[in-house]
């Protein structure tokens, strides 16, 4: 028994946690330069669309360190100036489930890197590719698309919105704040 418990525990945690906690500060080798732009629409002529060929970006999405770096950069690079803390302003809201240019992390990466015509500036060459991936991962986390266990919780600033862990539970409590 004494031996069994740690084994089960560790197996569970190995599966769940290893990559989530890794703090690779030079992750660039993990991905290509991200040159293959992602399709931004779900509509494709000629039947079923092929599966996404490159899922390496998942490394960023499931990693708590990268998500938290993304959150920091989101403020540092003034993303919050337009998108507020996810609610939007000059730019569209990011915490809802509406995606103008595709919801995949690759699409978001492309949006940040190349910009979009209706106002999203292009940060090509201005933000290193790793950091764009981190930002994209965080943006997806804003609408609850990253594992919550890896996603950052509240800020140490003014509370912009109910804590991440509260969001889905507003319904449970019977009303929104």
């Amino acid at each position: 028994m004494n031996r069994g418990l740690p084994c089960v525990l560790s197996a569970m945690l190995v599966l769940a946690a290893c990559q989530r906690e890794e703090r690779d500060t030079r992750p660039q080798s993990a991905l290509g330069s991200g040159d293959q732009p992602a399709a931004v629409t779900a509509l494709e002529p000629g039947g079923q669309r092929p599966a996404s060929s490159n899922n390496k970006a998942g490394v960023f999405e499931a990693n708590a360190f990268h998500l938290s770096e993304g959150k920091r950069l989101f403020n540092w690079f003034n993303c919050s100036g337009c998108h507020a803390n996810g609610g939007g302003g000059m730019g569209p809201a990011l915490m809802d489930q509406k995606w103008l240019y595709g919801s995949s992390i690759e699409s978001i990466h492309a949006t940040i890197r190349d910009g979009r015509p209706n106002g999203m500036p292009s940060f090509r060459d201005k933000i290193p590719d790793d950091q764009i991936w981190e930002l994209a991962a965080f943006v997806r986390a804003l609408s609850g698309n990253a594992p919550k266990s890896a996603a950052p919780s509240r800020d140490d600033d003014m509370m912009p919105h109910p804590s991440e862990n509260r969001l889905p539970d507003a319904a449970t409590l019977g009303k929104s704040p």
């Binding site: 703090r23 500060t25 030079r26 660039q28 920091r72 290193p128 590719d129 790793d130 950091q131």
Partner: peptide, 14 residues
């Protein structure tokens, strides 16, 4: 920078 001061906020810019 990450080789010299790992974890610092200065990124490798390529």
């Amino acid at each position: 920078p990450q080789g010299i001061k790992p974890g610092a906020h200065m990124p490798v810019v390529g």
